[in-house]
């Protein structure tokens, strides 16, 4: 069984839950940006939740199946069409040999997850099938899909029904991204910190799997200091350090960048703290120009939010009888 790529979409990549253990060499986790949607897509087609799926951004690919299988599309509202006929998202449906899956225009969100029963069976690289495009590692030949590619698929089973809207998870408008201040937060003035949370920001066009840039808020004022040796001359510079996933760096103090699954692992810009693990999925569903606010939380609140997200996934499992 295989999936043939008829057209690729804007940037469609193979992703699973990622590749931990190599960040110290600069090789990031990768994996689906919206892992909630990735897990649910796999649940719907009867796969392990961490099986490899296709992540499509803004625009869907066109695919042809060489044998019967079960398919589900979750994430942003990118309407799937089977042989030209619209199908519901967040719902499993069967496909036959020769069927073609295409997509309508994106209605909301940013990324769709296309799961095929049996999982996309590209070779494991460092323990994962995820594509790290910048490092040309994993996925299908280390890159986004192109027309003419053929992806092997494992052996799968039957579909598991559908997931209603109230069990899905998508960002609000404006998106509220909870963040724990820390790291180099002390480098900015108290007033700058207050404004950072009060402002409504907008996703900039430079938003991809490495990171999301935001603009439209107030530039930060830094606490004056003599720059330490090796840091560089700008007040936003630090001696190059590790960058956590979800960390919010502000080069020059102007436009915050939240690092995501394909994060650069380190660099020389101060960070204000991190978007909490529970809200990383939401960033993956933001389009350019989408409004967003950063909301301050404590560690206890971050852990509670993490627990709530796990409970939401457990509700989906229970709904699907898993």
């Amino acid at each position: 069984m295989a999936v043939k790529v008829i057209s690729s979409g804007l940037s469609t990549t193979v992703q699973d839950l990622g590749r931990p253990g190599y960040y110290h060499l600069g090789i990031p986790l990768s994996g689906g940006m919206d892992r909630f949607a990735l897990r649910v897509a796999n649940m719907l087609v009867g796969n392990d939740e961490g099986a490899a799926v296709l992540e499509a951004v803004f625009m869907g690919p066109e695919l042809e199946f060489t044998a019967a299988a079960t398919v589900a599309v979750t994430g942003g509202d990118l309407p799937p069409k089977l042989n030209g006929e619209e199908r519901a998202g967040w719902e499993a449906f069967p496909v036959k040999a020769g069927d073609r899956l295409s997509f309508g225009f994106l209605k909301s969100g940013a990324r769709a997850y296309i799961a095929v029963s049996g999982g996309i069976d590209v070779p494991l690289k460092l323990g994962s099938r995820s594509t790290y495009t910048l490092g040309a590692l994993g996925g299908h030949e280390g890159r986004a899909l192109k027309a003419g590619d053929e992806l092997p698929v494992g052996k799968g089973g039957a579909g598991k029904g559908s997931v209603p809207t109230n069990l899905r998870r998508m960002p609000g408008n404006p998106a509220e991204l909870r963040m724990l201040p820390g790291l180099y937060w002390h480098r900015i003035t108290a007033e700058a910190g207050t404004r950072f949370f009060a402002d409504t920001w907008k996703v900039a066009p430079e938003a991809d799997r490495i990171g999301y840039r935001f603009r439209g808020g107030t530039a930060l004022d830094f606490v004056p200091r003599e720059q330490p040796f090796g840091a560089g001359s700008n007040p936003s510079n630090i001696v190059d350090a590790c960058y956590p996933y979800g960390s919010i760096q502000v080069p020059g103090g102007t436009e915050p960048i939240v690092l995501h699954r394909d994060a650069v692992s380190g660099g020389g810009y101060m960070m204000l703290g991190c978007v909490i693990s529970a809200d990383m999925d939401l960033i993956g569903q933001l389009q350019p120009h989408a409004p967003a606010r950063f909301v301050e939380v404590s560690m206890d609140q971050a852990l509670q939010a993490r627990h709530d997200r796990q409970a939401a996934l457990a509700r989906v499992r229970s709904h699907l009888g898993l």
């Binding site: 330490p228 090796g230 630090i238 001696v239 350090a241 979800g246 960070m271």
Partner: peptide
């Protein structure tokens, strides 16, 4: 310092 709920960051020195 904690980097969100999944990281601990340790700064030995501000300067290199």
């Amino acid at each position: 310092s904690f980097g969100g709920d999944e990281h601990i960051f340790g700064e030995v020195s501000e300067s290199m």
